[in-house]
């Protein structure tokens, strides 16, 4: 009888501990919505032919809905704020556990960083990943000195100080979260024009770090092993400045490894991006109109250069996407 009582107490404590973790962790529903993006992938049907990985430059600028609407390409953006290249690599590895896309698009902006920028950004990418070896490896690769692995296992150890900041949102989204992206694309309709081009600071060093090349090699190897084409892209974000020296290194890498690379900064006119209307952050991110233009271009480019299926011909997939497109159309109005 005593043993039964003890077991019951332990079970109740475990449930309570789980609930407390759920309650205290940020829900990212109305504020800092970027934190909820990574988990939304798990709820999707895994039939994407193109997967985008990278930092904010992908989830703000590429709309998979446009890719589908224009060319019937099924795609998903596994982007997150300040996603480091090693995080992109592990996210990609994790994605391959679920599906085998034909093309992986990696946004090369992360090549400029050789160490994690902040714990908060790590959290936005890692917290909502499902537990797997990839998540474990990603945590190990990303942790700053002041972070502990245990706080990723038990979020309460990180977010316990939210006990006095809990809001109705924490109750409303205790178990269920709403979707706030379309296939990983975050809609932003605001307009904040680019007024002056930001000053370009001279850097002490332009050479990408070895760690970045190592992970780029790993991404390429992963794609090769799985028969996936790798495409490198640089989104048309005006700042932080993408230096010619950076561009030359990526060009050289792409040429050496026979990978396609598009720097959309060179194609702004061709795409028709107007920084007085197509950006919501004075040139850092494109807004909905800008992202639509870029995605249109991307759709055509992908269709022309890769052997992708027009899934609009597949009634089953098309039915799902038409439903999404209808909702998307409402949201972008």
């Amino acid at each position: 009888m005593k043993v039964v009582k003890i077991i019951i107490i332990v079970i109740i404590a475990t449930v309570a501990f789980y609930l407390l973790n759920q309650l205290l962790e940020p829900k990212y529903m109305t504020d800092l919505v970027e934190g909820s993006m990574i988990s939304q992938y798990y709820e999707e049907a895994k039939n994407h032919e193109v997967i985008f990985v990278g930092d904010c430059e992908v989830y703000a600028n590429i709309s998979p809905m446009v890719l589908y609407e224009k060319q019937g390409i099924t795609s998903y953006v596994r982007g997150s704020s300040q996603q480091m290249i090693w995080q992109s690599y592990y996210l990609l590895k994790e994605t391959l556990q679920y599906e085998k896309p034909k093309v992986i698009v990696f946004n090369v902006n992360a090549m400029r960083y050789d160490k994690p920028v902040s714990e908060a950004y790590n959290r936005l990418t890692i917290d909502k990943m499902k537990w797997s070896k990839e998540k474990y490896d990603m945590i190990q690769a990303s942790m700053l000195e002041e972070e502990t692995f245990l706080s990723y296992v038990f979020p309460i150890l990180r977010y316990h100080d939210r006990f006095d900041k809990l809001t109705q949102e924490d109750i409303d989204y205790l178990f269920q979260r709403k979707k706030n992206t379309y296939q990983g694309f975050l809609i932003n309709k605001e307009v904040k024009p680019l007024e002056d081009m930001p000053n370009v600071k001279k850097l002490a060093k332009y050479q990408f770090a070895d760690i970045d090349y190592d992970y780029l090699d790993k991404i390429q190897a992963l794609c090769e092993e799985n028969g996936i084409k790798l495409l490198l892209m640089k989104a048309p974000s005006v700042y932080p400045h993408w230096y010619d020296e950076y561009d030359a290194q990526i060009e050289a890498y792409a040429e050496k490894n026979q990978i396609n690379f598009i720097n959309f900064l060179d194609k702004v006119e061709e795409i028709g991006i107007d920084y007085s209307q197509d950006t919501y952050d004075r040139g850092l991110y494109l807004n909905l109109t800008g992202a639509t233009k870029l995605s249109n271009y991307m759709a055509t480019y992908l269709k022309q250069n890769y052997d992708l299926t027009d899934c609009r011909q597949n009634p089953e997939i098309n039915a799902i996407y038409q439903e999404k497109l209808a909702q998307y159309a409402k949201d972008i109005m």
Partner: peptide, 21 residues
């Protein structure tokens, strides 16, 4: 006793001042 120990762990976890920063 078990309830006491568990409650203590909970209180420390939630109301303790520790971690990042």
């Amino acid at each position: 006793k078990l309830i006491g120990v568990i409650s203590m762990i909970f209180v420390i976890c939630i109301f303790g001042v520790y971690g990042i920063g």
